[in-house]
Design a protein around this nucleic acid. Structure first.
Lengths: 201, 201
DNA sequence: TACCTCTGTCACCAGTCAGTGACATAGGTA
DNA sequence: TACCTATGTCACTGACTGGTGACAGAGGTA
C-alpha cells in the first residue's frame, strides 16, 4: 500500500506537524487548506490526496493522541485524594499545552466535522482517564452525585485554563500570577474534600 | 450633532440589531462587515461611517448592556444561600441567552479589539453583581478563600453552559437532558454549602 | 525499450473578504 | 434661488479562500 512509500509518509508527517503547529500558534482561524500547505511547504493538493481534505486531516490529528493528556501515574490512595491529585495534574498539563487549549476552545464555538473528529478522540481519552481513577481508588463515596461534582470541577479547570490565555483575569482573579493558581488548587482541594465529606467527619 | 438626525439613528439601530442577531445565531465567524450589512439591509459603507468599522460596532454593542445579566433581586439571606441562588439564576440566564454565550466563547479564542471592548463591559457587570451579593449578605465567612471558590463555581457555570451548545456532552454528562441540569444545580449547591461549612455544623 | 503508477507543481476557477472612491439624492440654510 | 451637508447606492480593487484539472518527472515493471 501507500504506507510503503517513504516519500509519501514523510510528506504526510510534515503536513500533520505543520497543522498542529499552526493550530497551536495561530488558532483555529489559521487552519485552512492554504495555510497548512504553506506552513508544510507543500502544495495543498497533497492534503486532499493524502487526507481527503481538512476533515481527514483533523481526524488524523485526533488519532495522534500522544498529546491529549500527559498525566503520570498517581499513587493509589483514597478516592478524594487521588481524584484531587489527578485533577490538579490535569490542570497543570492543560496550562502547559497551548494546542490542547486551542482545541478545547474551538470545540466551544464551532460544531464542524473537524471539531467532531477531534472531540470524539478527546472524549475517549477522558473516559479512559476516569476509568483509571476508578480502578485505582474503588467506587466513589455513596450518596453523592460524583459524576456531577466531578464534571463541575473539570469544567472549572478547563475554563480557568482557557481564560488565562487571553485577558488573564476571571471573576476578579489575576490568572497571570502563580499565587493565584496556588489559591485555586487549594480551593479545588477544599471543595473536593468538603463535598465528599472527608474533613468534617 | 448627528444624534438629531432620525434617519441616521434608525439606521444605526438597524445595524446594531442585525449585528447582535447575527452574532447570536451565526457566531463570531459570521460577524463580518459584509454579513452585517447584508443582514441590516444597508450598505457596508454605512458601518464604516457610523461606527468606524467592526471594532466600533463591537464597542457600541458592548455599551448596550441590557443583555449581559438579567438576574432579578434575590431575597436577602445568608451568604451561601444568596450566592447559590444568584449563581443558579445566572446559569439559567446564560443557558437562555445565545448571544452572551457566543461572546463568552469568543473571548476564549480571540484577543482582538472587538473582544476587549466587549469583555471590559462584561467584567464591569460581573463586578457589580458580586458587589450586589456582598451588599445583601454581608462579608463572606472567614478563613475561606471565597474569591477562589466562587471563581471556580462561576467558571464551571460558564463552561457547562458553553458546552451545551455544541456536542451537548461533558465528562459523561448529557447536557441536553433537563435532569442533568437539576443534578448540576444540586451538586453546585452541595459544593457551596459544604465548602462554606454550613451543613456539617 | 515502452508502459504505468505515484509524487509533486502549477495555473486556474468562482466566490468572498475588507475597504475605498464616485455619484445621486434629500433636507436644510443663506 | 443657489449652496452645502449628510444619507444612501453602486462599482470597483486587491487579496485571500477552497477546490479542481492538467502537467512534469521519478521509479518501478513487463
Amino acid at each position: 500500500m501507500s504506507d510503503s512509500n517513504p516519500a509519501r509518509e514523510a510528506t504526510r508527517a510534515r503536513i500533520l506537524k505543520a497543522a498542529k503547529d499552526l493550530l497551536g500558534q495561530e488558532g483555529f482561524q489559521g487552519l485552512g487548506i492554504n495555510a497548512v500547505a504553506r506552513a508544510a511547504g507543500c502544495d495543498k493538493v497533497l492534503i486532499y490526496r493524502y487526507f481527503g481534505g481538512l476533515e481527514g486531516l483533523a481526524e488524523a490529528m485526533g488519532g495522534q493522541l500522544d498529546l491529549w493528556i500527559g498525566q503520570g501515574d498517581p499513587a493509589p490512595g483514597d478516592y478524594v485524594d487521588t481524584l484531587a491529585a489527578m485533577l490538579r495534574d490535569y490542570g497543570r498539563a492543560l496550562r502547559g499545552n497551548g494546542l490542547v487549549r486551542r482545541i478545547l476552545a474551538w470545540e466551544l464555538l464551532e460544531t464542524s466535522p473537524l471539531t467532531r473528529a477531534l472531540g470524539q478522540a478527546k472524549s475517549a481519552a477522558i473516559r479512559a482517564w476516569f476509568q483509571a481513577v476508578r480502578a485505582r481508588t474503588g467506587p466513589a463515596p455513596e450518596g453523592i452525585d460524583a459524576p456531577a461534582i466531578n464534571a463541575i470541577l473539570i469544567a472549572a479547570t478547563h475554563h480557568l485554563a482557557l481564560r488565562e490565555d487571553n485577558d488573564g483575569t476571571f471573576a476578579g482573579l489575576d490568572l497571570k500570577q502563580p499565587e493565584t493558581w496556588a489559591r485555586i488548587d487549594a480551593a479545588m482541594s477544599h471543595l473536593m474534600t468538603q463535598a465528599y465529606g472527608k474533613a468534617p467527619l
